[in-house]
Design a protein around this nucleic acid. Structure first.
Length: 682
DNA sequence: GATCCTCGAGTTCC
DNA sequence: CTCGAGGATC
C-alpha cells in the first residue's frame, strides 16, 4: 500500500515532467533537457507502469503508440466545417481583398494577423475536458477520416491540455514534416532500400494515412495549430490572442506571425517571409492573412465556401521547362473539343507531368503555343498542370501551329463553333461514341446515380461493343454479357451488377442531374427538383414556368425544354423508370411559390454588429422564413437590420426611406410567422 | 453596361 | 483548380 502510493506519486511527477519538457520543446522551442535526459525519464515511467499496470492511464505520455492496425479509416463529420481559403497571387488581389474587408466593416484601417501557410495536411483535433479524444483529416471540408490513432503517436500533439481548457475544444491546424526530418527519413529509407518520398508534404500525407499507427509513430511528424472549430467555453476575441491562448494550452503554434495594420503591413510581411523561405525549418506555400478581430470576422461571413475575412497569399508556383511533343483533341460530354498538350515528361511541383490541357483555341493563340515548342509549365494551385507560356526564341524551324479539326476525330461529324462561344463542339450528339461514353460516365458518377464499379475502362468496352447505347441499357445487363469483357471476372461482374441494382433507389434531384441536361448541374438539378416536386411536372413545364425557379433564366430554361422535347430522351426516361423494376425516387408536391412565412418576397440588408445573434444566425432566420439577405441597400430593399455602429448602409436606408429594424424588431417580426407554423430547425 | 457571385464543365495524377 | 458563362444586382 505504501509502495503503491510512492509509485503513484513518482508516476505523476514523471508525467508532469515529460509534459513540461514536451511543452518546452514543441511549443516554446526552448528545450531544458537533452534528448538523452528526456529518454531517461520516459523509460523510468515505462518501467514504473510495467510494474504497476493499474497506474497506466490513456493520457500518459507512454500511451502514444497505437494498438492493432486498422482495416480502414472511419469517417468523421466535422461539427464546424473545415473550409478552404480563397487564393491570391498578386499584390492587386491583396489590395482588393483589403478594400472589400474595409467596405464590409465600414472602417478605414483594419488590423490583420499574418502567418505562414504551412504546406502540409489540414487536421482537426477534438479535446473534451482537456483530453484528446479524436482527430480527423479535412476531407472534403464536411467529412474527413478518423486518424486519431496516428495523431496520438505525435509528440507535438498534447494528449492533455494545460491550464483551464474549455469543456469541448476543436483545434484546427496542419500536420507537416520539418525539412531536416524529411531529409533524415529519406536517408533511412534509402539505406533500408525502401521508397523515398518526393517532398515533405507527400511524406507527411503518406505517414499520416498509414493504417498501422506504429508506422506513423516511426515518422517525424509535427503539428502546428492555426485556429479553432467547435468550442464550448470562453476564448479570446482576436485571432492573435487566440493563438497565444492555444500555445498556453500546450498546442504548438508558429512564432512566425505578426499583427499588422492595413495592406502595406500585409505586403511587407509577405516580402520579408519570402526572402527567408528557404531558411525556414518547414515548407510553406504562401502566407495567410486574417482579420484579427473575431467579431469582425463573423460580421464579414462567407461567400460560397470561403471566408470573406481571410485570404491565402500564395508564392508563385514552381515552374519547369519542357517540350510540346504533340497536341491532341479530347471530346467531352457536351461535345466540346479540348486541345491537350502531350509533353515530354517533366518533374514539377512534386510529380511528373506529361499532359496538360490547353483549354481552347483562343487560349492557345493567346499563349502562342506551337507543336514542337519549348514551354514553361507549372501546376496551377499545385494540382492541375498548366502551360504558362511558350519560349518562341527556342522554336524549331519545323514547329507547327495546331489546327482545330473540321470534323470530330471520333465520329466524323462536323465541328461547329458558335460565334459567341469559345469552345468548338462536335455536332454528332449521342451518335458520337465519345459523347455517349462521357454521358454514361456522368450518369454513373458519384454525385449522380452513384453506380459503383462502372469506370472508364468498362464504359469504353460496353460502348465499343455496342452492348450499351443509353443509360437505360445499363439496367438490362446480364452476368454472362459482362463476364465476357476484358479484365472482368465473374466476381467483378457480380459486383458491378450489385452496384447497378443499388443505384435504382435514388432521389429526384440526382436523377435530373444524371440526365446530363446542358447547363443543368448539381445545384440547378436540386432547385428544379424542389420546385417541381415530380419528374412529370418538370417534363411538361414550359419555359415561362421554368424561369420561375430561382437561378433559371432564359438559357437554362431553353436547355431543359429542348431536352424534354426530344423523343429519344423521353424513351430513355420511360425505360429507366418502368415499373416494377426500374429506377425510383420519392416525389412530393411541388414547392409552393414562396408565399409562406412573414418574410416571403422581402429583401433584408444587415449592417453593424448585432448583439445577440451572429450574422449567420440572422441570415438563416430570415431565409428560413422566405426572405432574402442582400449585401447593399437599394430601392428594392424592404428592411435594413441595424446593429451597433451601423455605418453608411444605415445612412443610405434613411436616404431612400427604407424601413430600419433593430434586432428585437426583427425577432418580433419572425415570431409572427413561427406562431402560425411549426418551428423549422436551421 | 458593369460587376459580383455561382454554377457548370473540363481536367491531371496517383 | 480554372475558365467561361448564366443570373442577379447596382
Amino acid at each position: 500500500m505504501a509502495s503503491q502510493s510512492a509509485a503513484e506519486k513518482r508516476a505523476a511527477e514523471l508525467r508532469e515532467a515529460l509534459e513540461h519538457h514536451n511543452y518546452q520543446y514543441y511549443v516554446l522551442d526552448d528545450p531544458e533537457v537533452s534528448d538523452a535526459e528526456y529518454d531517461l525519464l520516459f523509460r523510468e515511467l515505462q518501467q514504473l507502469e510495467a510494474e504497476h499496470p493499474d497506474l497506466v492511464s490513456a493520457e500518459s505520455p507512454t500511451q502514444r503508440v497505437g494498438a492493432t492496425p486498422l482495416a480502414a479509416f472511419q469517417s468523421v463529420t466535422h461539427a464546424v466545417p473545415m473550409l478552404s481559403l480563397n487564393n491570391a497571387f498578386t499584390e492587386e488581389d491583396i489590395v482588393n481583398f483589403d478594400r472589400r474587408v474595409r467596405e464590409g466593416l465600414e472602417k478605414d484601417v483594419v488590423n490583420y494577423s499574418a502567418e505562414p501557410k504551412f504546406d502540409g495536411l489540414a487536421i482537426s483535433l477534438r479535446y473534451e475536458n482537456g483530453l484528446f479524444v479524436q482527430g480527423a483529416t479535412r476531407g472534403d471540408g464536411y467529412t474527413g477520416e478518423d486518424v486519431t490513432q496516428n495523431l496520438r503517436t505525435m509528440q507535438s500533439i498534447p494528449l492533455k491540455l494545460r491550464g483551464k481548457p474549455p469543456r469541448v475544444l476543436e483545434v484546427r491546424g496542419e500536420v507537416l514534416m520539418f525539412k531536416r526530418d524529411f531529409e533524415a527519413l529519406n536517408q533511412r529509407q534509402r539505406e533500408a532500400g525502401g521508397k523515398e518520398f518526393v517532398n515533405p508534404r507527400n511524406a507527411a500525407a503518406g505517414s499520416l494515412r498509414q493504417l498501422d499507427a506504429r508506422m506513423s509513430a516511426s515518422r517525424p511528424l509535427r503539428f502546428m495549430g492555426y485556429g479553432i472549430g467547435a468550442c464550448d467555453g470562453d476564448f479570446p476575441g482576436t485571432h492573435s490572442a487566440l493563438l497565444d491562448w492555444l500555445a498556453d494550452l500546450g498546442i504548438p503554434v508558429t512564432r512566425e506571425r505578426v499583427l499588422v495594420a492595413g495592406v502595406d503591413g500585409l505586403l511587407d510581411f509577405y516580402r520579408r517571409i519570402g526572402t527567408r523561405r528557404a531558411a525556414l525549418p518547414f515548407d510553406i506555400d504562401g502566407v495567410v492573412y486574417k482579420v484579427d478581430d473575431l467579431r469582425a470576422q463573423e460580421q464579414l461571413g462567407f461567400v460560397s465556401r470561403a471566408p470573406r475575412f481571410a485570404i491565402a497569399h500564395k508564392f508563385p508556383a514552381e515552374e519547369a521547362i519542357t517540350e510540346v511533343r504533340d497536341i491532341d483533341v479530347q471530346v467531352g460530354r457536351t461535345g466540346a473539343l479540348t486541345p491537350t498538350a502531350r509533353l515530354k515528361p517533366v518533374f514539377v511541383g512534386g510529380t511528373t507531368v506529361s499532359n496538360a490541357t490547353l483549354h481552347n483555341e483562343d487560349e492557345m493563340r493567346r499563349k502562342d503555343i506551337h507543336i514542337g515548342d519549348t514551354v514553361v509549365v507549372r501546376r496551377a494551385g499545385d494540382v492541375i498542370p498548366e502551360v504558362v507560356r511558350a519560349l518562341p526564341e527556342k522554336r524549331p524551324a519545323d514547329a507547327r501551329l495546331f489546327q482545330m479539326p473540321t470534323h470530330c476525330p471520333i465520329c466524323g461529324s462536323a465541328v461547329i463553333r458558335l460565334p459567341d462561344e469559345v469552345v468548338a463542339r462536335c455536332s454528332g450528339g449521342l451518335v458520337c461514341p465519345a459523347q455517349r461514353k462521357q454521358a454514361l460516365l456522368h450518369f454513373a458518377s458519384r454525385r449522380a446515380m452513384d453506380i459503383e464499379g462502372l469506370g472508364e475502362k468498362i464504359v469504353d468496352q460496353l460502348v465499343d461493343r455496342n452492348i450499351v447505347r443509353t443509360p437505360s441499357d445499363l439496367y438490362h445487363l446480364g452476368l454472362a454479357t459482362l463476364a465476357e469483357l476484358e479484365r472482368m471476372g465473374e466476381k467483378s461482374a457480380a459486383n458491378l451488377l450489385a452496384g447497378i441494382e443499388g443505384s435504382k433507389q435514388t432521389t429526384l434531384s440526382r436523377f435530373i442531374y444524371a440526365l446530363g441536361i446542358r447547363n443543368v448541374g448539381e445545384a440547378t438539378a436540386r432547385d428544379l427538383a424542389r420546385h417541381f416536386g415530380s419528374l412529370d411536372q418538370l417534363m411538361t413545364a414550359d419555359e415561362a414556368a421554368l424561369q420561375q425557379v430561382s437561378d433559371v433564366g432564359p438559357i437554362v430554361a431553353e436547355s431543359v425544354r429542348r431536352f424534354f422535347s426530344e423523343q429519344h430522351n423521353i424513351e430513355v426516361i420511360e425505360r429507366l423508370r418502368a415499373k416494377p423494376d426500374g429506377v425510383r425516387w420519392d416525389e412530393h408536391a411541388p414547392a409552393a411559390p414562396k408565399t409562406e412565412g412573414a418574410f416571403a418576397g422581402k429583401t433584408f440588408v444587415l449592417t453593424g454588429t448585432l448583439s445577440n445573434m451572429s450574422r449567420d444566425n440572422a441570415r438563416s432566420l430570415i431565409e428560413s422564413r422566405g426572405g432574402k439577405v442582400s449585401g447593399s441597400v437599394s430601392k428594392k430593399t424592404h428592411y435594413v437590420v441595424a446593429g451597433d455602429e451601423a455605418g453608411s448602409k444605415l445612412d443610405r436606408a434613411n436616404e431612400l426611406g427604407v424601413a430600419v429594424l433593430n434586432e428585437e424588431q426583427l425577432l418580433a417580426l419572425a415570431e409572427e410567422s413561427s406562431a402560425k407554423e411549426p418551428q423549422e430547425k436551421q
